[in-house]
Structures are given as structure tokens and as C-alpha cells.
Amino acid sequence: MRHSPSIVPLDRLDREIYLVLEDFGARAGCAWRETDETETDLETVLRHLLAGQYAYPVRIVCFNPGEGWSRDATSDVADALAQRVTDTYAEVPSALQDFIAANATRRFDVQLALPLQGAA
């Protein structure tokens, strides 16, 4: 039996790929969001979540086809989001707050900046 080489270069697949399962409501249900191949790395997914590009994220999976593994990365991503919010004081959409609260494995306390007296 002949083995044909892959038409997709392996180096494109030998990396961690993150996909987001989003809840679109009772009528539409949940679906894996379609995304460009170049926007499936962890950093880009974190930026998109914080920017509100996902209204109601439910689950996040990570896989590496080159190494042949997959895992649930939901709590890891929730922890990374919470840490980023804590470090940068970023505003977080309420649905993302719920996602972090439901999935983070560590406690993150955020001190909100108070307005300065006399500041305009």
C-alpha cells in the first residue's frame, strides 16, 4: 500500500490550537466558532475574549495535531484571563466575568482604581 504525503505541511499543525465553544442562546444552541487558522493561538484567543468577540464562551479546547493530543483548556484560559484583568485593570464584559467566575481555579481579587479628588 502506497502512503501519500500530506498536502498540509506538518509544521503548520505542530502547534497548540485553541477553539472556543460559544452559547448562542436557546434557539441556536452552542457551536464551535469558526476562526482563521492564524487566530487560534492562545494569545489571540485571550485578546478576542477580552475584546468581547465571544459573547458567551462555554468551553475552550486545545489540541496539537502534530503531536496527536487534545485537552480541555477552559480553566487554564479562565485563569489566564483573570490574571490579565488583574494585571491590566481591563474592563471585562459581564458574560466573560461569568465565564471566569465559573471556570477559574484560582482566586483573583481586583482592586478597582478610585477616582482622585480634584481630578477632571
Rank of each mutant, 00 (worst) to 15 (best):
L96M: 10
G25W: 07
D76K: 10
R15F: 00
E43M: 08
S94I: 09
C30Y: 08
E16W: 02
H48T: 08
W32T: 09
A78C: 04
I7P: 02
V92T: 15
A90F: 08
E22G: 03
L42E: 03
E37W: 15
N103D: 06
C62T: 01
T74K: 08
A104I: 04
T40H: 00
A82G: 15
G66Y: 00
A78L: 02
P57N: 11
L10P: 05
E67V: 03
A102T: 10
A120Q: 11
S6Y: 07
L46N: 03
L114T: 00
V110A: 08
Y54M: 01
H3F: 14
L42D: 00
I60P: 05
S75H: 12
V92F: 04
Y54N: 03
A51H: 12
L21N: 05
T88R: 10
H48S: 14
L116T: 01
G118N: 02
T74H: 07
A120K: 08
W32L: 12
A95G: 13
F24C: 07
T88M: 04
G118V: 01
R59L: 10
D14Q: 13
V20A: 04
P5S: 14
V77S: 08
Y89D: 14
F108Y: 15
T44R: 10
A104Y: 08
S70L: 03
P5V: 08
W32K: 01
L19M: 07
E34Y: 08
E91D: 15
L19A: 05
D79G: 05
A31M: 06
D109T: 12
G52N: 07
V61C: 05
L19N: 04
V58K: 11
V110F: 14
P93I: 00
E43S: 12
V20R: 10
A51I: 03
P5L: 13
Q83W: 10
A26I: 11
Q53Y: 13
S75A: 14
Y54A: 00
R71T: 07
L50I: 13
N64A: 03
I60E: 04
W32H: 02
Q117H: 10
R84I: 06
T105D: 06
A28F: 12
A73S: 09
R84C: 12
